[in-house]
Design a protein around this nucleic acid. Structure first.
Length: 564
DNA sequence: CGAATTTGACCAGCGC
DNA sequence: GCGCTGGTCAAATTCG
């Protein structure tokens, strides 16, 4: 259940274990076992009270690392009441709390007590006067204090923003889902209205084929609703016999009279779906819409040694077949994160290169997604939307492959391809190809994340690296969840790399935002998608009756694409 | 013991 | 009509 959730943000901690931007983190202090956590380069006891003010009530004794070589105390200082710690081969002296404060025994507001000279300020071995040293120390102290408070503010801001971001993300998902239903109702109402005009409650197939080419798979799916209408009114068996209704047929006429398992019943594609459809035209339309979306497929090619990439969603395998022309079996999975989620995926290794795992997604999740699943879901969903949107309405009826390639993976040269000959409109995101090493001016650059070995990342498995760049960050981050492994080579050559494992928390904190942001930035690079997205968003904002632009587009343009 | 996976059977579409 | 293929189901099996 928790697969892929390992990087979920935890901003609820009441302790001081607040993830800090790794830019502040020196690589040395990476062992959290010692309860030292670096803030602005100054290790501070992690267990301090988070509510403590920055003033001296956070006195930390014996766990304070000295912050600068230049502040190295005089070696001749008395050690009577001092802890002596060694760090970075520098002997540092820390006054214990029982030392009375004095002008020479400076209290740093972070709780540090610097044993600069202690009572031995008269001992100055470098010829600098104690006043000058004290002045310098005071300045450093002030600076430290300022940076500390700034750091604290930044942390709070970061936590706040991250929390808001996650919350908004979930709200958006919920809204989209809700809007989807509302839209279906509207479409259904219009359809019924027109049905009455046509008469007999029988919807001519052409009515639902907004596209002119007429034979699109999607149209078949869309016509499911009309079939259902027909079933409701006339119930001719043969009226059900058309593409996309075999499951319903099986359910109605199934010679085996199979008892549908709760599982299959719960699935949007289960045989009992027809009963639900018969009971609710809204559901029928919704299923039709889902079917429409489901027809659009997004195939992701990535190198992986695992049998399946876990993309943050929960999948249940329901079948496996040997496909023609491929010695590797094809596995069928359905999403089990929510009852009735229509999303399914096929996983198969590439016949030519068995290190390449081809995952084909189909459908749209009808439930909120965990953050770990957001990246992949939004990426595939966006690709599917583009596939079914006006982006397809180019002169030749097929989108320029590189357009989508650039939109989804802007850094790539031709990582995304479209298949018009396939039975279903399919977009393939190829993450296996080497992209050109030319530095990419893409804004996604800012989303580059350091990459490290798969430390503590669940479901990380060894795999062959892909040399895609930062624009694949949308998938890069999800890959950290999913187990797609990016190479160290990638990380080192194309992504900023540091070696401090303590960056994990920072990565965790930022990966979600980066992931979604990167995907968003990448996807919205395409003006066509931007238009679709804008329409979708405006429909959401406008009360949920505009999102059908996407679906209408789907219906109207996908036929251009099916080509069969 | 429940959940997940495996696997053989079933079914529809499609081409011949 | 027949065979092939892709997709799905569900009983049997395995796994945790």
């Amino acid at each position: 259940m928790d697969k892929g959730w390992g990087l979920a943000l935890d901003t609820s901690s009441s302790s001081s274990q607040i993830p800090i931007s790794h830019s502040f983190l020196p690589s040395k202090h990476n062992n959290t076992n010692d309860r030292m956590f670096p803030i602005l380069g100054f290790p501070v006891n992690l267990t301090r009270n988070a509510n403590a003010e920055d003033s001296g009530d956070r006195k930390i004794t014996g766990e304070v690392d000295f912050f600068s070589e230049r502040n190295k105390p005089s070696p001749s200082a008395s050690h009577d009441h001092q802890h002596v710690v060694k760090h970075n081969n520098i002997k540092k002296e820390i006054v214990s709390t029982d030392v009375k404060p004095s002008t020479s025994n400076i209290h740093v507001n972070t709780g540090l007590q610097l044993a600069n000279t202690g009572s031995d300020q008269s001992v100055v071995d470098d010829g600098v006067s104690s006043d000058a040293k004290n002045t310098e120390l005071a300045q450093l102290q002030m600076e430290l204090q300022r940076m500390n408070s700034e750091n604290k503010k930044l942390k709070e801001m970061l936590n706040h923003v991250t929390g808001n971001y996650t919350a908004l993300q979930m709200q958006l998902m919920a809204l989209m889902q809700k809007n989807h239903q509302t839209e279906n109702e509207v479409v259904n109402a219009k359809a019924e209205e027109k049905n009455q005009g046509v008469g007999g409650g029988i919807v001519p197939r052409q009515f639902l084929e907004i596209g002119t080419n007429g034979t699109a798979e999607v149209d078949d799916r869309v016509s499911n609703s009309s079939s259902d209408e027909r079933t409701r009114s006339n119930t001719p068996q043969n009226s059900l016999i058309e593409a996309g209704n075999r499951d319903q047929i099986r359910n109605n006429n199934g010679k085996n009279g199979r008892e549908d398992s709760p599982d299959s019943e719960s699935q949007g594609w289960g045989p009992n779906k027809v009963q639900k459809i018969l009971n609710s035209s809204n559901v029928a339309e919704q299923s039709a819409t889902e079917a429409t979306m489901r027809k659009a497929r997004v195939s992701v090619r990535a190198r992986s040694e695992a049998s399946m990439i876990s993309d943050g969603c929960q999948w249940r395998k329901y079948g496996q077949k040997m496909a023609k022309g491929n010695p590797c079996p094809r596995a069928y999975y359905r999403c089990t994160m929510a009852v009735g989620c229509p999303v399914r995926k096929q996983v198969q290794r590439c016949a030519e290169d068995k290190t390449i795992l081809v995952t084909t997604y189909e459908g749209t999740h009808n439930h909120p997604l965990p953050p770990a699943a957001m990246a992949m879901a939004s990426t595939t969903s966006a690709a599917a939307s583009m596939l079914l949107s006006g982006s397809m309405s180019s002169a030749d009826g097929i989108m320029t492959p590189n357009l989508l390639a650039r939109a989804i993976l802007p850094c790539s040269t031709s990582m995304a391809t479209l298949s018009a000959s396939a039975p279903f409109p399919t977009v393939t995101l190829d993450l296996t190809q080497n992209s050109n090493p030319i530095p990419n001016p893409n804004p996604l650059q800012q989303f580059q994340r350091p990459h490290h070995a798969p430390f503590q990342v669940p479901n990380f498995f060894p795999g062959q690296p892909q040399n895609f760049q930062q624009a694949a960050a949308s998938l890069y981050n999800q890959s950290k969840f999913s187990g797609l492994q990016l190479s160290q080579e990638v990380g080192s050559s194309h992504l900023t790399t540091t070696q401090a494992p303590t960056l994990q928390q920072q990565q965790q904190q930022s990966s979600l935002a980066d992931s979604v942001s990167a995907a968003t930035a990448a996807i919205t690079a395409d003006p066509n998608f931007t238009a679709v997205l804008a329409a979708a968003i405006s429909s959401i904002i406008g009360g949920g009756h505009g999102n059908n632009s996407s679906n209408n587009n789907s219906r109207s343009t996908v036929s251009n694409f099916s080509g069969n």
